[in-house]
Design a protein around this nucleic acid. Structure first.
Length: 418
DNA sequence: TGACGTCAAGATCCG
DNA sequence: CGGATCTTGACGTCA
């Protein structure tokens, strides 16, 4: 059983993917971007290995304009070694990766040109995974596409167009229910016809279900039958509704109580769970720690080190509460721990608490900072008090100091990104 | 024709 | 001039 996250990290230095606009997409630029992005991907994979994350979705923008003819450089060959090095790390650590073309890759379109581009896009995604040298259990997830006033005809067209795909693409392709058009039973019908694995997405299903007679667990069991041994473990997507945003919007973080309720209601033995959530790796690590059989307080102490200053600026009372929670070294109060962090992070930061936390961070530098740096920090605090600047300015300033003076504890802190 | 979703690039504004 | 903040881009479907 693995739990993972999609595309990018939060709070992990040197893991951002870069891109460019169409008009700047020339060979020299693209070469630099790809080189940078592959290094970033390697850093993400390294982070995953260190943090015991065994499931990860590689972002489609790894190769900018990867499926477009404007990108005509032979990136597969030019970066072959870099790809293979990353692929080796993935295989060695038994990580499973995947890719997921976006909502604009539509295989079942009645428009020939759009179908052609969709096929090119699927070829591109396949090529990335092949360059890494990873097996066919490393999947490409696709939605069915548009309805065009007749879902039966449109489903049939998906099946017809599927047969245009290269064997290497078909081997990896899996299909998923969406939040507007194709319900899980629609997708299963196509999946069974094509002998293609089906991904169950719980939030899409909650919004767009043919009938709600069956539970999530029931549907997961039905989908399981579409996964064969060669496909690897069954995969599902899991996300939660953001309570403040419109229907279908992913939550900022995975609420741990709600996740555990879901987790305990399904058969997880041979199941991989891809989380779709704004805070990415933070929620993945949270859910991994909450379901881990290896219950060590050190795991929570490390997590606390990353969250503590964010908690301090949101809620000093929760800060004290969590410290108390972690005093018994033989305990593993993982659920209470994350509940307290979630509750703290929901609270509005008062100006007083914001400044208090900033001064705590400043404590790392006050004896080593140059006068110029000290003045800049004090000025940012003054400006903030007078509402002339946002807390961003203070944090960006302190972040630069953390890099300059190489404070490892601060470089891993979520204070700068949450 | 614009909303939808996503997030970095690119543009512009500010001190 | 550097940094913060706002706007655009790139894609296809649907109302």
């Amino acid at each position: 059983m693995s739990i993972g996250y999609a595309c990018r990290t939060v709070g992990v230095p040197y893991t951002d993917l870069k891109s460019c606009t169409l008009k700047n997409a020339n060979g020299a630029n693209l070469y630099k971007l790809i080189d940078h992005n592959l290094s970033a991907l390697e850093n993400i994979i390294d982070y995953n290995i260190i943090n015991n994350v065994k499931l990860f979705r590689i972002g489609s923008d790894l190769i900018p304009f990867g499926s477009s003819s404007v990108n005509n450089i032979l990136w597969g060959e030019l970066f072959a070694e870099k790809f293979l090095k990353i692929g080796e790390k993935i295989k060695e650590s038994k990580m499973r990766v995947s890719m997921h073309p976006g909502q604009y890759t539509v295989l079942n379109s009645p428009d020939e040109g759009i179908v052609k581009r969709a096929i090119q896009d699927l070829n591109y995604h396949t090529q990335v995974l092949e360059c890494l040298g990873v097996g066919q259990e490393h999947k490409i997830v696709l939605h069915i596409g548009g309805v065009y006033n007749d879902k039966k005809v449109a489903s049939q067209r998906f099946i017809t167009h599927y047969h245009y795909l290269d064997e290497s693409v078909k081997r990896r392709l899996v299909i998923e229910n969406d939040d507007k058009s194709y319900t899980i039973d629609n997708v299963l019908e196509i999946g069974i016809a094509l002998n293609t694995p089906v991904i169950f997405d719980n939030l899409h299903h909650a919004i767009n279900a043919y009938d709600k007679e069956k539970s999530d667990d029931d549907w997961i069991k039905v989908c399981k039958k579409t996964w064969q041994k060669k496909d690897g473990n069954q995969k599902i997507h899991y996300s939660q509704q953001d309570p403040l945003k419109k229907i279908g919007s992913h939550s900022h973080t995975i609420r741990i109580d709600e996740f555990i309720r879901f987790y305990e209601g399904i058969e997880t033995e041979k199941l991989d769970i891809m989380l779709e959530v704004k805070d990415k790796n933070l929620s993945a690590v949270k859910c991994i720690n909450a379901t881990n059989k290896d219950k060590k307080i050190q795991t929570l102490e490390m997590e606390w080190g990353k969250y503590k200053y964010t908690v301090l600026e949101s809620s000093p009372s929760d800060y004290l509460e969590i410290r108390k929670l972690l005093t018994n070294k033989s305990d593993y109060p993982v659920i209470s721990f994350y509940n307290l962090i979630e509750s703290a992070l929901q609270k509005e930061c008062t100006a007083r608490n914001t400044i208090n936390a900033a001064l705590h961070i400043w404590g790392y530098f006050k004896n080593i900072a140059e006068d110029k740096e000290k003045n800049r920090f004090l000025k940012s605090i003054e400006d903030y008090k007078q509402e002339k600047t946002s807390v961003r300015t203070i944090k960006n300033n302190l972040w630069k100091m953390s890099i300059k003076y190489q404070q490892p504890y601060l470089l891993g802190s979520y204070y700068f990104v949450l």
